[in-house]
Computed example of a mutant assay.
Amino acid sequence: MEISRFNLSPKSHASMVTNEQCIETVSGALQARYGELRNAAKRVSRSRGWTVKAFTNWLYGKNAPRMHDLIVLMADDPALESRIKEMVQETRECLHLQQYRQ
């Protein structure tokens, strides 16, 4: 059986990583890294080719970056990369538990 977010039990789905947690993780990492930098949104976005609005939205947790932008952020920030890897491992464990219950 293929595992998706639609066929997981409510109990296992509750322990899975949510979109909100992903947004909070990225936002927290960006704030920790760039929060004290004057004009951080302008500086970082221009150096990476992003719009200031997009980076500002990521910085303040309004939305998450696209996959290829997330990879760039992870490459630039080892702490973010580490946290994302932890979230992947947590999700993997939830999926394995669900698979063994069926």
Rank of each mutant, 00 (worst) to 15 (best):
5 R>K: 13
6 F>E: 15
9 S>G: 09
9 S>F: 01
11 K>H: 12
12 S>M: 15
12 S>R: 15
15 S>W: 11
18 T>E: 05
20 E>F: 06
21 Q>M: 07
21 Q>L: 03
22 C>W: 14
24 E>S: 13
25 T>S: 06
25 T>P: 14
26 V>H: 06
27 S>H: 05
28 G>K: 03
28 G>T: 08
28 G>S: 07
29 A>T: 12
29 A>Q: 11
30 L>H: 07
30 L>S: 06
32 A>T: 07
32 A>H: 07
34 Y>Q: 00
34 Y>N: 04
36 E>L: 15
36 E>S: 15
38 R>D: 14
38 R>Y: 14
38 R>C: 11
39 N>A: 08
39 N>F: 08
39 N>C: 03
40 A>T: 03
42 K>Q: 13
43 R>A: 10
44 V>Y: 05
45 S>H: 03
46 R>H: 14
46 R>E: 15
48 R>K: 09
51 T>I: 00
52 V>N: 07
53 K>T: 09
54 A>V: 02
54 A>S: 05
54 A>L: 00
55 F>M: 05
55 F>H: 01
56 T>V: 08
56 T>S: 13
58 W>H: 02
58 W>C: 03
58 W>L: 03
59 L>P: 08
59 L>G: 01
60 Y>L: 09
60 Y>Q: 03
61 G>I: 07
61 G>W: 02
63 N>M: 05
64 A>L: 05
65 P>N: 04
65 P>L: 02
66 R>G: 09
66 R>P: 07
68 H>C: 04
71 I>H: 00
75 A>L: 13
75 A>Q: 08
76 D>Q: 15
76 D>L: 15
80 L>T: 06
86 E>M: 10
86 E>R: 03
87 M>N: 04
89 Q>F: 09
89 Q>N: 14
89 Q>E: 15
90 E>D: 15
91 T>R: 14
93 E>N: 08
94 C>R: 11
95 L>D: 10
97 L>V: 10
98 Q>H: 13
98 Q>M: 12
99 Q>F: 13
99 Q>V: 13
100 Y>D: 12
101 R>D: 14
